[in-house]
Each structure stands twice: as structure tokens, then as C-alpha cells.
Amino acid sequence: MSESMLSHRIYYVWKRNLVSYRRFAIPSFIASLGEPILYLIAMGIGMGSYMGLVDGMPYLNFLAPGLLVSTSMFSATYECTFGAFVRMKIEKVYNALIVTPLTVEEVVAGEILWGMTRSMLSGFIMLGVLLAFGIPNWKSFLLMPLLWVAVGFFFSSLAIIVTSFAPHFDFFTYYLELYIMPMFFFSGIFFPLDRMPAAVKVISHFMPLTYAVRVSRSFIYGNADWSVLLNLAALIIAGLFIFYWAMHRMKKRLIK
């Protein structure tokens, strides 16, 4: 893949999505935030009140860093599965774009950049919610945008690959139910992984969200070290591979 396949034109694709999003901003906001807030209240406050300290902190505080990245993962995932599928298959946006000087690679990169934007946005809103719950401390949040970029990049790219195979909407149910949801529950958001059976621990290594949750927790509670950097790097490098594959896959789907 030559470098000239990507250019500043990525921005036009992103801009198109922004203009379109402004119209649906409020409903899509509520949809993407409802779930994590629900978990925060039901699990964090509801269940948390029956639990002692987890990893030396109240359950709500244990939960918060994980939800801060899972909301970001969900946004990127919905945007680049259902959202991208509508644009590709129903609205024919991709067809209109590739007739102009844009390449398929730029269309894909623009979609992923938009997925990252959505994922960043959800992260910030969740952050606002957590601050309202009084979870400390705002300084540790300075590093979070970096993590949202990595999470958004990885999961947007992965979602585009899924979309490139999707014959219809139902296809995404498999991806969400069989991959995203299990990852949500077994990536160390809801309970520490070190007390889990060996099998769960092994599986969790193949779940990219695990790395992100680990990084998030150490960012939030200020105990970041070199191993955290490795986790973040792993996520970004894996993201790059997935990104290239996503461009390749979409080209196969669109160019006949």
C-alpha cells in the first residue's frame, strides 16, 4: 500500500460525518451513554453497597476506570458497524465519495477518524459523570485522551473490518454478542482478573480491552509505570495492523 493512498482528504470524510451528526447529536448521545451510566449506578452503587473494598478501594471507584474506556469502545464500535453500514449500504455515501479524487483508503481512514472522535466524546462525557459522582482526581484524567485515541483507533478499525464482511444488519449481532459483550465482562472492568480461573485469565489476554482497562486504572489512580506503557503500545501497534487490514478489506468490498 503506497503512502499516496492517504491524504488530507480524510478530513472531508470526517467533516461529512460531523455535519450529519449535528442533526442526531442528542439522541445518539443518550443512546451511547445510557448503558455505562446504568452499569455505574446498578453495579457501582447498587452492588457496591453490599461489597467491601475491591483492590483496596470502594467498588464504585474500582469500576470507574473500566467504564471510562468501555464507553469509548462501544461508541467506536456502534459508529463503525451500524453507522458505517448505513452510510455504505443504504445511503451510498461511499459510492459518492470514491467517484471524486478520494480513494477507498481515505474513506476508511475518515470513518475511523470519526469513530475515534465519537469515542473521545463519549469518554469526556463519562468523565463528567464520574466527576459528578466525586471520583478523584481530575489531574489523573489528563492522560485519558491518549488512551481514548488508542481505544477508538483499535475498535473503529476492527468494526470496519466486521462491516466489510456484513451482508445485513443482523450480522453485527454476532460481533456484539460473541465478541464485544464477553470482552466487556471479562476484561477486568467488573472484577480483578487475578482471582479468576486460569482459563479466563488466558482468554483475557486476547481481549484488547483488558490492556486498555489496565492502562486506564493506572492513569486514574496515578500508579503508571513502564508496564503500562507496554500495554498502551501493544494496543496501538495492534491497532495499526487492524487499520491496514480494514483499508484492504473495504477496498475488496467496494471495488469490483
Binding site: 455535519v19 450529519s20 442533526r23 442526531f24 445511503e91 451510498k92 455515501v93 459510492n95 459518492a96
Partner: peptide
């Protein structure tokens, strides 16, 4: 095939 952007 009409590919006008219906969101806009």
C-alpha cells in the same frame, strides 16, 4: 443509483 446524502 441515487447517492445523494439523505442526512444533509
Amino acid at each position: 443509483e441515487n447517492d445523494l446524502d439523505p442526512d444533509l
